[in-house]
């Protein structure tokens, strides 16, 4: 796999004065543009039935992932729900491995066994892609439990949608994480809709960060369309976690431009609402900042755009040309035990 097709998060995130470096802004732009173009392509391919199953696109929410990448170390752990293509892309999993996974090919990051909802890449500490709403929340607390147990100083960032906060698992996990001061950052990506049910129809409590306060957990809303705001919030939460002060609940207020999944007619919201959010587009915001600060020219950004499109096209070609898993793979990775006696008749 050619290295240039993989994003490398910056190591010099801020300069001596504490300002974001050019590398950071350029990473944000390139990673978010890659997430955007990758997901647009995935949507097209889904329409062509190249990608099957359920497929949930991240378009509009890119800052929620990119801002956290720069705020964390590469030893920190990530876990998320099933809208999960973008996090590993941002962390440095190749577009090829993710696209091949969407195709169900053996070269995918989960060898074609996971599909859209179950991306995993141990190389970048991305611990999945989980399909039961809210189940990843106690798991994220448990991942953090192990870090605390081993005194590593690492944290776990645990993403969920706004629907997950209505599950019991969320509340049980927040309670124990706060009681035990686990180094976990709980992130609600509030895009306003749990599938087709708006926040207002699901609960009397519509400011989701308030739910953390029931457990006396530091909790706050964050502009999830602003990558710098995301970075600052995650960095502060990580600092708290590493200092042994426990978890933080962040409510990223964001918006998905597309439906819940590819089979969503979106009759629950208006076109005007979608268009209003597009004016806050996270990719456009960073692009404007880069140009305003003179960090790059229009031509340089256009070159990045061209490179990203080439990465996406390359990933499609790679996925197309890759083989499906051998049928014998159905019996591998079920047990670690190599000679487990499956019932065969």
């Amino acid at each position: 796999m050619s290295m240039e097709l993989v994003l490398t998060p910056p190591t010099n995130v801020v300069d001596a004065e504490g300002n974001f470096t050019k590398d950071t802004y350029m990473y944000w732009y390139e990673s978010m543009y890659l997430m955007r173009k990758f997901e647009e392509k995935a949507g097209q391919l889904y329409g062509q039935q190249k990608i099957r199953g359920f497929c949930h696109l991240y378009i509009g929410q890119e800052a929620c992932a990119a801002g956290a990448v720069t705020a964390l170390t590469r030893n920190d752990k990530w876990i998320a729900a099933y809208r999960d293509h973008a996090y590993p892309l941002g962390l440095g999993t190749s577009a090829r491995a993710i696209m091949a996974e969407l195709y169900g090919k053996a070269t995918g990051c989960s060898k074609g066994k996971g599909g859209s909802m179950h991306m995993f890449d141990k190389n970048v500490n991305f611990m999945g892609g989980h399909g039961i709403v809210g189940a990843q929340v106690p798991m994220g607390a448990g991942i953090a439990f192990a870090e605390k147990y081993n005194k590593t100083g690492n944290v776990c960032i645990c993403y969920m949608g706004d629907g997950a906060v209505r599950q019991g698992a969320f509340h049980e996990a927040l309670n124990m994480a706060m009681t035990w001061k686990l180094p976990v950052i709980f992130v609600i990506e509030n895009n306003g809709y749990a599938m087709g049910t708006s926040i207002q129809r699901a609960s009397n409590v519509t400011d989701l960060y308030i739910l953390g306060e029931a457990y006396e957990m530091p909790s706050m809303p964050v502009d999830g369309m602003d990558v710098e705001a995301v970075h600052h919030a995650v960095a502060k939460a990580a600092e708290r976690a590493r200092a042994g002060e426990g978890p933080t609940l962040l409510e990223f207020r964001t918006y998905r431009y597309r439906g819940h999944s590819m089979s969503d007619p979106q009759k629950y919201r208006t076109k005007e609402e979608v268009e209003a959010y597009k004016k806050l587009d996270p990719v456009e915001q960073v692009r404007a900042t880069i140009l305003r600060k003179g960090l790059a020219t229009e031509e340089e950004l256009s070159a990045i755009n061209a490179r990203v499109k080439a990465i996406v096209e390359d990933s499609v070609q790679f996925a197309e040309e890759s083989p499906f898993p051998d049928p014998s793979e159905a019996f591998t990775d079920v047990y670690v035990q190599p000679d487990y006696p499956f019932i065969m008749d």
Binding site: V137, P138, G142, I143, F145, A146, Y149, E172, A173, N175
Partner: peptide
């Protein structure tokens, strides 16, 4: 606490993390 779903999940998270 009496949170079987929560502590089972914390156990799973700890197990997948070593």
């Amino acid at each position: 606490p009496i949170s079987e779903l929560g502590f089972a999940g914390i156990g799973v998270g700890a197990a997948i993390n070593g």
